[in-house]
Design a protein around this nucleic acid. Structure first.
Length: 430
RNA sequence: GGGUCGGUGCCCGAGUGGCCAAAGGGAGCGGACUGUAAAUCCGCCGGCUUCGCCUACGGAGGUUCGAAUCCUCCUCGGCCCA
């Protein structure tokens, strides 16, 4: 397979290069022959989240351009915790949790890359393989000796934590060495010449390159991408409500995933299309100019949502999310067919309720809190008072009594909190 | 080990005996305006059987008519000294 000589230009055009080792040399190296490169992912949870997408796609871009990529699962580093970009010490994961996390993440890592390619199949490795058997004394002699504390302390990630009131534990302080050792090991045993990561990984990557130079006598490449942030500077990967946007359909429904992209503000949309999708740069520009002509149609948001949901959850789930969206934000809820409602039941938070509450006074408030639509009766009362609840698209007052005649198809109540928060209450069969 | 300062609601952070469910900011939620956007404005933002009651200011006791505020012990953290 031939390699794409324009890879680096493409990455630059997308704004995906934050920092790299000597740009000219890197460009030459990437254009001459396939490079082996890796990105590491620590199993801090049982699913990856949106914040990991850029890294996964970076590997994909490299692979598509003809290079050899390694996905590194941080089974060992995950035990320690990376202080980079973290303001506080993290709690340690126990073995059981870690094992569960790894098994949740592995299929996600695999889904973005081609492991069966005859030319340049991707490789999946776990750094436990070369770390668990490494004794502490050996580590101090073989790795620690090559790195001075002076340079470690100078790294931003460490310094900011040393200056904070919480401090940094020796454990997290040592993280950098583990990651550096990973890079050196991969360089030596897997012919891996390049490490990529988010911009907060620069210090760790550079430490790895130093180690390679001193310990192995080789020279490696490093590249970081900018951390994805909103226009207000906050990190991505969370909903407006602060919920993490997981890639796992169990933890975050495809519908909710799709919706979170539909709601992206205009100022962000081009950057996200460039950095989070595989769309050619020219296509992105075309979509953006179409969007600029009629912003209220939100074609760019729709495109982003479709691209990403398809990438993460597949075309079927995307179609389902689109249908649900059309039903709920398009026409009239009252016109929904029973089939459409059954489909919505799979996409929206759903709660089963007893028909006893129908026609009974004061049943609405407890129904709202029991279904999780509101966190408490107080909140439910408050929300109703503020005119924030509608059932089947009709705003309801505090003393509203639900009657069976109000239900769609005799048993469905689509409860809307504000404009965007929807839940489906399904009543028992009559 | 000694000294010292501190631990307040989702977060930051005021409060140093009653006027404290606890200022202010942020986040969040609802409403208006819109394009399921941004900006702006208004309201809400511990719980409950909601004109009142209960739970809360690291934990446990105590002083007091009354404590987030005072005392004792414990615990956790910062800083300084050893």
């Amino acid at each position: 397979m031939s390699i794409d000589p324009n890879l680096l230009d493409d990455l630059n055009a997308r704004g995906l290069v934050h920092d790299s080792t000597d740009a000219t040399r890197l460009a030459e190296r990437l254009a001459s022959s396939p490079v082996r490169a890796y990105v590491g992912f620590d199993p801090t949870a049982d699913s990856l989240h949106v914040g990991n997408l850029v890294g996964l796609l970076m590997l994909r871009r490299l692979q598509d351009a003809g290079h050899n990529v390694i996905v590194l699962a941080g089974g060992a580093t995950g035990m320690v915790g990376d202080p980079s970009g973290k303001s506080a010490e993290r709690s340690l994961l126990d073995d059981e949790q870690l094992a569960a996390n790894i098994s949740g993440i592995l299929p996600q890592l695999q889904q973005f890359l081609d492991f069966d390619s005859t030319d340049n199949p991707a490789t999946l490795l776990d750094n436990r393989a070369w770390t668990v058997g490494f004794s502490y004394l050996d580590f101090l002699r073989d790795v620690g000796k090559f790195v001075t504390v002076n340079q470690m302390v100078a790294k931003d990630s460490v310094r900011s934590r040393m200056e904070s009131s919480d401090g940094i534990s020796y454990t997290e302080f040592s993280y950098m060495l583990l990651q550096a050792y990973d890079f050196a090991w991969l360089f030596e045993h897997e012919g891996c010449e390049m490490q990529m990561g988010g911009s907060d990984q620069w210090g760790n990557i550079v430490t790895g390159m130093d180690l390679i130079r001193k310990k192995v006598g080789g020279s490696a490449y490093g590249l970081t991408w900018p951390l994805l942030t909103r226009s207000d500077g906050s990190k991505y990967g969370k909903t407006a409500g602060g919920e993490t946007i997981w890639l796992s359909a169990e933890k975050f429904s495809p519908y909710a995933f799709y919706q979170s992209w539909i709601r992206i503000e205009d100022a962000e949309i081009e950057k996200l299309l460039l950095q989070l999708t595989l769309m050619p740069v020219a296509d992105v520009h075309a979509v953006m100019s179409e969007h600029a002509e009629a912003p209220h149609k939100r074609v760019a948001q729709t495109r982003l949502a479709v691209e990403l949901t398809t990438l993460v959850h597949g075309p079927e789930a995307t179609a389902g999310a689109q249908e649900a969206t059309a039903a709920v934000f398009g026409g009239s809820v009252a016109d929904l067919s029973a089939d459409a409602l059954a489909m919505l039941a799979m996409e929206l938070p759903t709660f089963n309720a007893s028909r006893e509450v129908l026609g009974s006074e004061g049943a609405l408030v407890p129904l709202l809190s029991e279904s999780g639509i509101t966190a408490s009766n107080s909140e439910a009362n408050r929300l109703l008072k503020q005119n924030g609840v509608s059932i089947n698209d009709v705003k309801v007052p505090t003393d509203h009594v639900i009657h069976s005649a109000d239900l769609l198809h005799g048993r469905f109540a689509l409860v809307r909190k504000g404009k965007k928060h929807l839940s489906l209450v399904v009543f028992d069969q009559p």
